[in-house]
Amino acid sequence: MSIQHFRVALIPFFAAFCLPVFAHPETLVKVKDAEDQLGARVGYIELDLNSGKILESFRPEERFPMMSTFKVLLCGAVLSRVDAGQEQLGRRIHYSQNDLVEYSPVTEKHLTDGMTVRELCSAAITMSDNTAANLLLTTIGGPKELTAFLHNMGDHVTRLDRWEPELNEAIPNDERDTTMPAAMATTLRKLLTGELLTLASRQQLIDWMEADKVAGPLLRSALPAGWFIADKSGAGERGSRGIIAALGPDGKPSRIVVIYTTGSQATMDERNRQIAEIGASLIKHW
């Protein structure tokens, strides 16, 4: 067993022997301040990774656009098919120029040779490549099948209805392509620590998230040296922004954090800054 596999296998073990965790309302004060600064709703939840206990939450059962955070769930569904012998990570998928959609920095470079399922998941999570996500959605049967996968996990809230990039439209009061912070946090925890996926697939999923290259201005910008984070960000229309993450000190994750916002007129930089400040408060009061 590799060191990384050992780390993920012992996530519940280490967490069980940690000192009790206590909620700190100071972080919620910052979440509410972010709402004021952005002029928009902000949803927040913080779960203990081992027990699933909610440590703090704000608007945990209000719907927010998922945006690209759905790509972690998508690759979880792909990995479940791999575990069941219905898919192979090494299978190569070929596609054409007509398949390319807006923001496809990886797939646009491989029109000639195609990409493997493993490479597509890596591109979808680490670079948020939209064509990679659409190609992977095709392998599982489309958005409705991802929703069905989530329902089978016990998540009857999260739903995907459309493809990239239309799913980022974020129309107010439109339930399409949305989740709730509580539902997303619980589902992410199941994917990373539950028995739904094999140990190898859980490790692969967290490795992809740990290698995320496009979430630097968010929670990662607030992390002290030595902290662990595996995350996936999302951005959408109407001032929408979000991030889902597993993080913790001492090089291992111990909490799940989900943050979503929508309806702001603020710039992307300002949305990023507010999420980073929430992260800084979380870490300060850990």
Rank of each mutant, 00 (worst) to 15 (best):
I171P: 15
R41K: 12
E119M: 15
A245I: 02
N272R: 05
G52W: 08
R92Q: 12
P172R: 06
A124V: 13
M209K: 01
E145D: 13
E195R: 10
V258I: 06
R271A: 13
S233T: 06
L55C: 14
F149M: 15
S281F: 14
E87I: 09
L74S: 03
T147A: 05
D36F: 15
A182H: 13
P217S: 09
L197H: 08
M153A: 04
F58E: 05
L47M: 11
P217L: 10
F70A: 13
K213W: 06
R59K: 11
S254I: 14
E175K: 13
D269C: 13
L219Y: 03
I45M: 08
R59V: 02
W286L: 08
T126H: 10
A84C: 14
R118C: 14
P181L: 03
E175L: 12
I256G: 03
Y103R: 10
N98K: 09
N272W: 01
T267G: 08
Y260C: 11
L28W: 04
D48V: 04
D250I: 04
P25Y: 13
D174S: 09
R271I: 05
V117L: 14
C121P: 01
L111S: 08
F58P: 00
H285F: 06
T261C: 13
I278W: 02
E277W: 06
A123W: 03
F70H: 09
G142K: 06
D155N: 15
E61G: 07
S221M: 12
A276E: 05
G239D: 02
F149Y: 12
G90Y: 05
S128C: 01
H156T: 13
V157Q: 09
P65M: 02
P60V: 06
R255A: 08
E270P: 03
G234N: 01
E35G: 10
M180F: 15
G52Q: 11
D36Y: 10
I275N: 00
H110W: 15
Q97H: 06
P60M: 11
V117G: 02
G85S: 07
L55G: 14
D207T: 06
R189V: 07
K232T: 00
K213V: 04
G239T: 03
N50C: 12
N130Q: 12
K30T: 06
G226D: 08
G39R: 09
T139W: 12
Q86E: 05
L74H: 00
W227L: 00
L160A: 12
I54Y: 15
P165H: 14
L192M: 15
R81L: 06
E277C: 11
I278D: 00
I259C: 14
L55I: 09
P65T: 12
A266C: 13
A245D: 01
A185I: 08
M180D: 14
R176W: 10
R81Y: 06
E210A: 12
D231G: 11
A225V: 13
L191W: 08
A132D: 01
N134C: 05
E35F: 02
S51L: 07
R220I: 03
V82Y: 09
L73C: 12
I93R: 07
L89I: 10
V31W: 02
I229N: 03
P249F: 07
K144P: 06
R63N: 14
T147I: 07
P60A: 11
G239A: 08
E210L: 11
D155G: 01
L100V: 07
E108V: 13
I140H: 08
V214G: 14
L55F: 05
E270A: 04
D113K: 06
P253G: 05
C75H: 01
S122W: 07
S80D: 15
T27H: 13
G251D: 09
H94K: 04
R271L: 12
S240K: 01
G216V: 09
R92H: 11
D177L: 00
L219C: 12
Q274L: 08
F70C: 07
L196M: 10
L74Q: 03
V257G: 01
N168K: 02
I140P: 01
R118M: 06
D48Q: 03
E166N: 15
H156M: 13
Q86F: 15
L282F: 11
A183N: 15
M180Y: 14
P224V: 07
E87G: 10
D33G: 04
E119T: 12
K71C: 00
L89D: 04
D83P: 02
E237C: 15
T138A: 12
P165S: 07
T27V: 14
I259P: 00
S57W: 13
K190N: 08
H285E: 06
K232L: 01
P172G: 07
L73I: 06
D113A: 04
R59D: 02
K284A: 13
A133N: 02
P105I: 12
G279V: 06
W208M: 10
L79C: 13
E46Y: 10
D212S: 09
E164F: 00
V101E: 14
N272D: 12
L247T: 08
G52D: 14
W286M: 08
N98M: 05
T262F: 06
E56I: 04
N168P: 01
S201C: 15
K30D: 04
T116C: 10
K252A: 10
M115T: 06
L49T: 10
A246Q: 15
N98S: 11
L28P: 05
A148K: 09
V31R: 01
R176A: 05
K53E: 06
A246L: 12
A215S: 15
L135H: 09
L247R: 00
L199S: 08
T262E: 04
I278N: 02
K284H: 15
E166M: 15
T112L: 14
G142R: 07
P217A: 13
T131P: 07
R63K: 11
G85N: 07
D207W: 11
K252D: 15
R159M: 08
Q37K: 06
D231Q: 15
L120Q: 02
V214S: 15
D212E: 08
A225S: 13
P60Y: 10
G141K: 15
G114A: 08
S96K: 11
E35D: 13
I259G: 01
L223K: 09
T158P: 01
Y103A: 08
W286Y: 11
T131L: 09
H110V: 11
A276S: 06
L137H: 04
E270V: 03
K144T: 11
R220G: 09
A276F: 09
L199D: 04
S201G: 12
E277V: 13
E277P: 02
L223D: 02
D83E: 14
Y44I: 09
K53C: 12
I140W: 08
T179Y: 00
E87P: 02
E164K: 01
L150I: 14
V82Q: 09
L137M: 03
E119D: 15
E61L: 08
T112H: 13
T139F: 09
Q204G: 05
M153V: 04
G85A: 10
I259N: 02
T107I: 14
S51Y: 11
E87A: 15
I243D: 03
A84T: 13
D33Q: 14
K284M: 06
P60T: 07
G251A: 12
R238Q: 10
E102I: 09
I45H: 09
L197C: 07
V117Y: 15
M67D: 13
G279C: 06
W208Y: 11
M127S: 09
T262S: 06
M67L: 14
L100T: 08
L191Y: 11
V106F: 14
E195V: 03
M184I: 04
T261S: 13
R176K: 14
D161S: 06
K284Q: 05
M66D: 00
M127L: 12
S68R: 00
D161C: 13
D174G: 09
R41V: 13
T261P: 02
